[in-house]
């Protein structure tokens, strides 16, 4: 189910503005890869290029290659809608659909994929997805209540349940805990630990302890100055990046000397 990602020499533009330049990085299947770096360095932009979400912004485009298990993500024959059905995404702020109930939220992706879903089948998917997201026990008695009635941390776990309900091959997380309290953050980190057995997870985070806790590989992004493109400075096993990074900028960042 999980797939590996191979990025080579990727440039990302917003119109004429080069936002991210020359990223080359392999992302292994069934692992957690964390992107760290100061604000504006292009981590989120790069993450969004992995499921072609950045192109919903008018004028955004990429040059270079992204291979998902060897298949070119940006091949002209590839439908971005199809891509997004296979590469799930969790956003910075929890965004359950406010007009849908908790159960409907979990099923939202399924309903897009296949219209007809038997009732028993649907409730099985709701239960298993919510269980995997460690939310089932908290919401099983109020599945018909609106998703927005939950707390922030619960909403974010609901969004994760919604993303994994369609059994994606890759799960992208864009600062999933930055709007959450420490307890909810712990819950989500535990969840990431469990999910990595089945999914390829890429997570953007501003919290370096979090990167150290959850990821096997860490990639450090930086930018030379405002208005300049972001670069991938270095990547490697998380323990190495956090103890003996090769680049002095990485060391300065992780030791808190800037950013």
């Amino acid at each position: 189910m999980a797939k590996s990602i191979d990025v080579s020499d990727l440039d990302i533009y917003y119109g004429d503005f080069l936002a991210v330049e020359g990223v080359t990085i392999p992302i292994a299947a069934r692992s957690v890869t964390a992107f760290i770096g100061p604000s504006g360095c292009g981590k989120s932009t790069f993450l969004r290029s992995l499921n072609r979400m950045h192109e919903v912004i008018p004028g955004a485009r990429v040059e270079g290659k992204i291979l998902i298990d060897g298949a070119d993500l940006y091949d002209p024959d590839v439908d971005p809608v199809e891509v997004r059905r296979q590469i799930g995404m969790v956003f910075q702020r929890p965004n359950p659909f406010p007009t849908m109930s908790i159960a409907e939220n979990v099923l939202a992706g399924m309903r897009l994929n296949s219209r007809k879903l038997k009732k028993t089948e649907a409730s099985e998917i709701v239960e298993s997805s919510l269980r995997r997201a460690n939310l089932w026990n908290e919401v099983k008695d109020r599945l018909t209540k609106p998703g927005s009635s939950l707390s922030g941390g619960q909403q974010q776990r609901l969004c994760i349940a919604r993303a994994i309900a369609v059994q994606p091959q890759v799960l992208l997380m864009d600062e999933p805990c930055s709007a959450l309290d420490p307890i909810s953050t712990t819950a989500i980190e535990d969840l990431i630990h469990e999910l990595r057995e089945d999914y390829t997870i890429v997570i953007v985070t501003h919290n370096m302890q979090q990167a150290a806790r959850v990821s096997e590989t860490t990639a450090f992004f930086n930018l030379a100055g405002v208005g300049r493109p972001g670069h991938l400075i270095e990547y490697g096993p998380t323990t190495k990046i956090f103890t003996t990074p090769e680049n002095p900028a990485t060391e300065a960042y992780i030791s808190g000397r800037f950013g």
Binding site: N51, R84, R85, N95, F97, M100, L112
Partner: peptide, 24 residues
Amino acid sequence: LHEEAALALGATRWEMIRMTVFPY
């Protein structure tokens, strides 16, 4: 945020409108 949630789930533009714009 809601529109992107729908798009990220693999909604087409029309499905995104039906899931988020109309209900909202």
